[in-house]
């Protein structure tokens, strides 16, 4: 499966990029979520992967011994997953608010950043 993961991640990036290039905010956000997941997997894979050796210290041992999964990328990715969700939630709220105020989710129409809501109509 290690051999396939780079291609899987490539597909995630391609799908995410394609969605980011859409006009509708709703699809752009899905693309953002895919890119976030893809990036986490990218870091995970680039750090090297191993089966069945989680970085947990056994009951009678004082330290990690033998081959083990690298804990550092995992710690980074854990942070990244949580922050990624925070960003996504904020983006969704922003899109929702934009839709309510501007009446459209079409980014091609969301070009007049200076105008007040009542002027946009």
């Amino acid at each position: 499966m290690e051999a396939v993961l780079p291609f899987v991640i490539g597909v995630l990036y391609a799908a995410g990029t394609f969605l980011m290039l859409r006009r509708a905010l709703a699809r752009i956000l899905i693309g953002l979520a895919l890119l976030t997941t893809g990036t986490n997997l990218l870091v995970f894979t680039a750090g090297g992967v191993i089966r069945g050796r989680p970085p947990l210290i056994e009951g009678d041992s004082e330290r990690l011994t033998g081959p083990y999964a690298d804990p550092l990328p995992q710690a980074f990715i854990l942070t990244a997953i949580v922050i990624g969700f925070g960003v996504l939630a904020f983006a969704i709220a922003l899109a929702y608010r934009t839709l309510r105020d501007a009446g459209t989710e079409d980014t091609d129409e969301l070009t007049n950043s200076e105008a007040l809501p009542e002027e946009r109509a």
Binding site: R51, R53, I81
Partner: peptide, 22 residues
């Protein structure tokens, strides 16, 4: 599969939440 139980737990939780919010 690749020995990251903490990541798996977090991802599952976050993804469930994300789907609900979406």
């Amino acid at each position: 599969i690749f020995s990251a139980p903490d990541l798996a737990l977090t991802q599952l939780l976050v993804d469930t939440l994300a789907v609900i919010v979406f």
